[in-house]
Structure formats: C-alpha cells, structure tokens
C-alpha cells in the first residue's frame, strides 16, 4: 500500500470515527478541520515512527510537515530518503 493510502486509512480509522471520510481532502488542515487535536498528534507521530521507520524530531513538529495529508506524504518521503 502506498504512503498516502496508509496515511489516509490511519487518519480515517483513528480520528474520524463518526465523520464522513470525504471531509479529509489532500491539502486540508487537519487541525482546522478539527480532525486532530493537541493529544492526537502524539498518536500520529507514534504511527509515523512505527509504520515508516523514521524518527520525528521535536523541531519537525510544524504545520509544513504534519498538518495535511499532502504535507505528511512529502515529509515522510523526505525523511525516508535522508
């Protein structure tokens, strides 16, 4: 399964239990859409580290890396290549 599909699946199953999955667009802000809250990010980081074998540094916790599916995909690719 590709990175994008894995990510989407995780977000829909874990943060959007009661919501319509079409709300989750590729570039929509996870925070502004109310999908992830301040504790949810820890869960997301845990998932990224386990699933994609990367280490998320504290300095990486910025919206440019984590706040949409598009940004997450780019971030994971960048980390996996480095």
């Amino acid at each position: 399964m590709d990175v994008r599909a894995q990510l989407r699946g995780f977000i829909v199953d874990n943060f959007m239990m009661g919501q319509d999955a079409t709300v989750l667009t590729a570039s929509g802000s996870l925070l502004e859409l109310g999908i992830i809250d301040s504790t949810g990010v820890l869960e997301l980081v845990g998932f990224l580290e386990e699933t994609f074998q990367i280490t998320v540094e504290d300095d990486d916790l910025v919206p440019d890396n984590l706040d949409s599916v598009d940004n997450l995909v780019k971030y994971i690719q960048r980390k996996s290549n480095s």
């Binding site: 925070l31 992830i36 809250d37 301040s38 990010v41 820890l42 504290d58 916790l61």
Partner: peptide, 17 residues
C-alpha cells in the same frame, strides 16, 4: 502525562481557534 512540550505547535493552534 500529555505534556504539551512536544506538541507545542498543536497546542498553540488549538487555542488559537
């Protein structure tokens, strides 16, 4: 136990709403 330190950005954005 959920110290906001690591998730500073998220905490801020959460409260910025």
């Amino acid at each position: 136990p959920l110290s906001p330190g690591r998730a500073r950005f998220y905490l801020e954005t959460f409260y910025k709403k």
